[in-house]
Amino acid sequence: MNKTIGILALQGNFSLHAKRIEELGAQSVEVRDCSLLESIDGIIIPGGESTTLLKLLDTKFRTTLTEKISKGFPVFATCAGLILLANKVINPEQTSLNLLDIEVERNSYGRQIDSFITKDLSWTKEGEEIKNNLNNNHETLEAVFIRAPKIKSIGKKVISFLTYNDTPVLVKQNNILACSFHPELSKEAYSIHELFLASL
């Protein structure tokens, strides 16, 4: 696979995403402004602090990136990245890029002491179909939730692939793939990055 994935490297766990992408045979490059946007095939918005990421996205970068994504540029957003893309953010309310039709609650499972790792995940019918085409589809999937957000509701155009306690944790809306956990922190979650690469 000769794809190059940009990893938004303003703040957060961008280096481990780069590692996963390269382990799956694609190239990765750190993206901190508009300059590389034309030379990448897709972008990952990593976990970190969404308030910090918002501060660091200056107007030009934010406008360019938003426009590109709304025109169909592939993006994979995890945790804080998902918060950044959501149409509505609560706890507390904050601005976002308004690209993904979900409502999301920040720090919904509690503080760090409530962070957790779980294998209690269920693929939806749509999720099963997509996952069966992947190389890593037999792995036991594990999800790492750190001060994680919760998807409270999803719009009509949004498809839920994976749920935890009946709450969607991995969703897709056209060119946008987003999850509320950290696939880059688990060796038992390759399939999530693979899902993104396969969609390019």
């Binding site: 760090q112 962070s115 294998k119 209690d120 790492v144 750190i146």
Partner: peptide, 21 residues
């Protein structure tokens, strides 16, 4: 029963999230 909390991975995981900050 399948849930793990307060493990070393979660502790280091939060530190990972604070990188570049």
């Amino acid at each position: 029963t399948n849930e793990n909390k307060n493990t070393r991975r979660l502790k280091v995981g939060l530190a990972e999230m604070l990188k570049g900050g």
